[in-house]
Design a protein around this nucleic acid. Structure first.
Length: 254
DNA sequence: CGACTTTGACCAGCGC
DNA sequence: GCGCTGGTCAAAGTCG
């Protein structure tokens, strides 16, 4: 439940090395119960052929675009800024005015990015605040999958968190969408950008106490890893941490 | 008291 | 068409 992010001295630092998985980024986080992490670099674009071909969400319209928050996305924002879709007097289940009608609108999925983190903590810190809105047991996995939504009412970003059934120590986090705001708990992440963290690893290491724990970021060997070790496309920007994850091509149209 | 989590139910999509 | 599964809703509960 804690969404606190590490202090400055708790900035995670990264040390890329390789192993059988095609490379592990070791994330040294602060040691308060699991080396809280924050959004790592893009590691895996789910179905890049599909997702990357989608137009980026029009963030300027994020609060009002039905497409940007199709389906359940409209729920949290509708309660605060939409018409009184009062759940208290919700119509019968087959009414066209309830959530069913919302889902009739095609679920327009936004680009998704998944990464694997070796951590004992399920919900890794990434500088944003998230509200859990669901949890489901998933097939072929003993671990449940948790669903989170950004607490910013105008932000449609969601993320799923689940543990790998193969290696329970690995947390698989999948982001969907793009933040339309800055980080709220970890400003440096947005201001500096992930790569600078990497580039400043050595200096940071001089400033932080030895991490009692470490997280390992796994780069799935099945994904397009060519760009991973160098992460050339991730640049500091104002889009917040997730913006660092989202490829520039997807952020371009603003 | 507000923010957040939990949890059962509901719904849509997909494969057979 | 049917059943399974993933994703979401929303009321109730919990916490600070």
């Amino acid at each position: 439940m804690e969404n606190k992010i590490g202090s400055t001295t708790g900035d995670p630092t990264w040390d890329f090395s390789s192993d059988g998985c095609g490379g592990i980024a070791y994330l040294y986080g602060e040691g308060d119960g699991g080396g809280h992490g924050w959004a790592p670099p893009r590691i895996h674009e789910e179905d890049p052929d599909t997702w990357c071909s989608l137009p980026p969400p029009d963030l300027s319209e994020a609060s009002g675009s039905a497409a940007a928050r199709s389906g359940g996305d409209a729920v949290s924002s509708s309660s605060s800024e939409g018409p009184p879709a009062d759940p208290g007097d919700k119509p019968p289940a087959d009414s066209p005015n309830n959530k069913t009608s919302k889902k009739v609108q095609k679920r327009v999925r936004q680009p998704r990015f998944a990464f694997m983190t070796k951590s004992e903590i399920d919900h890794l810190e990434d500088g944003y605040r998230w509200r859990k809105y669901g949890q489901k047991a998933v097939k072929n996995s003993p671990f449940p999958r948790s669903y989170y939504r950004c607490t910013n009412s105008k932000c449609t970003v969601k993320k799923r968190v689940e543990r790998s059934s193969d290696d329970p120590s690995i947390v698989i986090t999948t982001y969907e969408g793009q933040h339309c705001h800055h980080t709220v708990t970890f400003p440096r992440a947005a201001a500096v950008g992930f790569h600078d963290h990497i580039r400043t690893t050595s200096s940071l290491l001089e400033n932080i106490s030895p991490p009692p724990q470490q997280q390992q970021l796994y780069f799935p060997a099945t994904t397009s890893l060519q760009s991973v070790p160098e992460l050339p496309t991730v640049l500091p920007n104002d889009d917040g941490l997730l913006g660092d994850i989202v490829s520039p091509g997807m952020r371009g149209r603003r």
